[in-house]
Nucleic acid binder design. Structure first.
Lengths: 344, 344
DNA sequence: TTGAAAGCGCTAACAT
DNA sequence: ATGTTAGCGCTTTCAA
């Protein structure tokens, strides 16, 4: 089924059908519409893209689609783009730099723009592709040379500081942190800010024990397990993302550590069930779908006007205090129990 | 950057470069490879697809990417397809029939095959597109006329029966059910099987109060709230999917109903945090990534051999008993408290 | 094994 | 406002 058959049936040339389809004013619009629906005609996207250079869709490459933060964010992207009749093609890089590069290479010529979450800040992806005039918006993570893309992220430093301040204000002095990789933006910023904020009070009795992990559930489990053997023991922990928080909670449960009595925990990113947990979770919350909708708007605007100034947007985060954080048990209490047998 | 420039640099014709790229034996393979990497050449997918008809990617249209069941399943799809160098393009229909149709129309000419989860069993999508020789695999849900596609789903009826049997065996007699839409396969099968299994004991004192909802968190919340006002009160509830279970749990918490003391609950689909909830959740579990990997394999096989017999595969499910189900309180106990003010 | 050449289906330039 | 025509970049005959 091709455009020439529609043209024949409607009694016009294929160019006229083409014009009609792209919104142009045409005399025999009615007949063309009838022919199109009668023949169930769908323009071939390859031919169309090849000829016009416009693909009518954008690509989104997320690091982990099973992370609810990213899937919520994609929801925000889709909402904005669907209104413009622009399709969203989603791909999942699994936090893998090579995979991301190959996906970009693939999508760059199939789409009108890309929304990326670079796995590392040293990612050279813009060097390779941005010169090919594909608009790129970076979300949640930047890159060393991100001066050539729009960027939208949250105030990771503020979030991590709020977490540290909250714990210190509760009276905690021996803090634990499950950090993300220092190689990407949220990992680095949350790590640095948590340490800085912990030290900022000038109280030299405040110490932070950091385990660097990988933003995954299993990594959070392992990191929490490691932190439990710290000596002197920590009384609270800050987990730098939602997935690691899940792992940390499971590790705490498996080791019989009670929250918040023995250990307080605050996570970065809210969880759907945070309020229904055995200890409702205190978290740093951030507006995930707003991140997505802003990213989509930025991309839309850049597609329309490639010459406009690059935007760099930071959204605020907030502290949601629930029941997983509390003052530490008195130091005079007897040493807490720590059974290190893994029971899965 | 196009193939002719690579050809020139390598001292061959563009046809030879093309052959080299598609795995053909070529004399000057070495020089061509050098030219390709030197020029950073990427074949234009539109031109390639237009000419050859092969797109080197498949489409997956999920009803709700924020549902962890689907995102896990997509993980299984990607694992299998990535090994074959086939790209996965993901789209999110939001359980919307029209949206799904428009996405299929769009993807059908951009991909070599589709994995679909039809929003309703009366979906006519196969009629419109399967004749266009696009292989389709149906996952989790079938359609009335699905004889022209491979299908893989789980044993919904067995799962719902296990849930009913479990509750009745615990001594429950007044059951509640939060059902999904009767218009799709899992909704219908779980509904029918739960009712059938409840009645199968021949015990006429067993009654089931059903509220039909929509497989969404908010729907589950509303349905649970409605069930709480049932008279005589129910002592347990079966929620037909994970998202509605989350809503139901939140409704129970908001109304101050304790689980499992006042109401036992069993959900269809495990949750990541099911074991860490205030009442660790009893669920029907199913192999989500296996569903995905099987779907991908079926699609791969059909692409290779369009004439092969259509497969219809059902995977088993299992009951995971945790702490959210228990025997009902004695009937002689005084009527339980039910405050119906919504406090969010 | 290779190159020349046709053409996939569409849109945009040009002419009317 | 419309038709004619060229050509997007590639793969695939066809002939050598």
């Amino acid at each position: 089924m091709q455009i020439s058959e529609v043209a024949k049936l409607a009694g016009v040339s294929s160019a006229t059908v083409s014009r009609h389809m792209s919104g142009g004013r045409v005399r025999r619009a009615e007949e063309i519409a009838v022919a199109i629906s009668q023949l169930n005609y769908r323009p071939n996207p390859n031919a169309r893209g090849l000829r016009s250079g416009r693909q009518r869709c954008v690509g989104v490459i997320v690091p982990d689609i099973t992370n609810p933060f990213f899937s919520d964010l994609v929801g925000g992207v889709e909402t904005v783009l669907a209104q413009q009749g622009i399709r969203v093609l989603l791909a999942n890089s699994n936090e893998d730099l090579a995979m991301e590069a190959s996906m970009v290479a693939d999508l760059v010529d199939r789409t009108d723009g890309l929304i990326l979450f670079p796995p590392t800040e040293t990612d050279r992806i813009l060097d390779e592709f941005v010169d090919e005039s594909v608009p790129v918006v970076l979300v949640d993570r930047t890159m060393r040379d991100s001066k050539r893309a729009d960027v939208v992220l949250v105030d990771n430093a503020a979030g991590a500081s709020m977490a540290a301040d909250h714990l210190v204000a509760l009276g905690h002095r021996r803090l634990g942190m499950i950090s993300g990789p220092a190689t990407n933006t949220p990992g680095r910023e949350r790590h640095d800010a948590f340490l800085a904020a912990s030290a900022s009070g000038g109280d030299s009795s405040v110490s932070v024990q950091v385990v660097v992990s990988d933003f995954r559930v299993e990594g959070g489990y392992a990191a929490m397990t490691e932190l439990l053997s710290a000596s002197p023991p920590i009384t609270c922990v800050f987990s730098a993302n939602n997935l690691m928080t899940v792992g940390a909670l499971r590790a705490l449960a498996d080791h019989g550590v009670s929250v918040p009595d023995e250990i307080s925990i605050v996570g970065f990113d809210d969880l759907d069930l945070a309020d229904l947990l055995a200890s409702p979770l205190t978290v740093i919350d951030r507006p995930s779908d707003e991140l997505g909708s802003i990213a989509a708007s930025l991309l839309l605007q850049r597609i329309q006007d490639p010459g406009r100034e690059f935007q760099y947007i930071r959204l605020p985060v907030s502290l949601l205090v629930r029941a997983s954080t509390a003052p530490p048990l008195s130091i005079s209490a007897e040493p807490r129990r720590r059974d290190n047998h893994d029971n899965h």
